[in-house]
Design a protein around this nucleic acid. Sequence first.
DNA 1: CGAGTTTGACCTGCGC
DNA 2: GCGCAGGTCAAACTCG
Length: 336
Amino acid sequence: MEKKPDHSKSNSDNSNIMASTTFSDQIPASYSGVGGGFFDMPQGCLDMLNYQDDGGSSLFDLFQQPDLVPEQKHHLLPPVSTVTLTAEMVNTPTQNSSSISWSSNDAANIVDQENKSRSVQEKDYLHDGDDDQEKSTTKKHLKPKKKNPKRQREPRFAFMTKTNIDHLDDGYRWRKYGQKAVKNSPFPRSYHRCTSVACGVKKRVERSSDDPSIVITTYEGTHTHPYPMTPRGNIGILSETSNHGGGGSSFLFTQPHYQHQHRQPQLPYFQNQTTQSSSLGFNTTNASAHPSSYSHPLHERRFCPSSSSTLLRDHGLLEDVIQFQFQNDKPKEEQN
DNA sequence: CGAGTTTGACCTGCGC
DNA sequence: GCGCAGGTCAAACTCG
């Protein structure tokens, strides 16, 4: 069998990437105004960005070190230079999103595709009993497909990550179940499922066709198990000392359900982006959507997209970086 | 040997 | 109805 280069394993030698880190919130306009839109993604707020490099430090750690000058922080950053959050409220009927976008082939494209395929039936791969029987009695050419009625898609949200790493380690364990070439893109899209039993969370990973340095990671669904679930997950959000990042970097992206279950609510981290966000169609006005998620102290690591109005203003580096990033990205967005 | 990946085939929805 | 494209399946394969 012909093997393609496994980019997902090329997590090393990315240290030459510019170490600016942005967590932006670009969102197709079609979502920004729909029913709370983006900010209602899975129960509200997201734990995220406990980005750990091989040294075990995270972005949160990094940016919260007041005694580091920006240059020092940059030097310490892992090889992810830009992280962009995109919403996909696929459960919500949407209008055309063609008017938006940071890239016609990227976020908006994803959302368009999601809208088109919203009614794609999801196989119930959790019904092991049936599957076992089918496995033993059917061939590939006689594969019976389950006919499910149209179902609602799980909420989706996408990260755009400027990195050489194709598959960011978010702490969960994923099994790749497919890969497809994407039209108008030289880069394939890979499909992953959470390996946890009874957890149907899916993740898609693809590179932007416009900017190959950008990896678009789209999550769908909510983890039904505590985080971390696996040995890899030992790098967990609250575990700052372990260093099992899988040889590369890691995103922790814990669902709110378990945040409340296992941790104290946390202060949103990337909140100092009000100006940029609003200019990109990111709805920063509904901060009250999830009040429980941003009324808590520091040293916590949560990105809470719904709480933009409570932005902290003292993450100097990040703010600078975001400004820089958007200044650089904006012309491209407008071109497309 | 179990877990994860690869990859061609298949299914489904949508646009024409 | 047909073709296209996205999404998924599952056998074969690799890897630790």
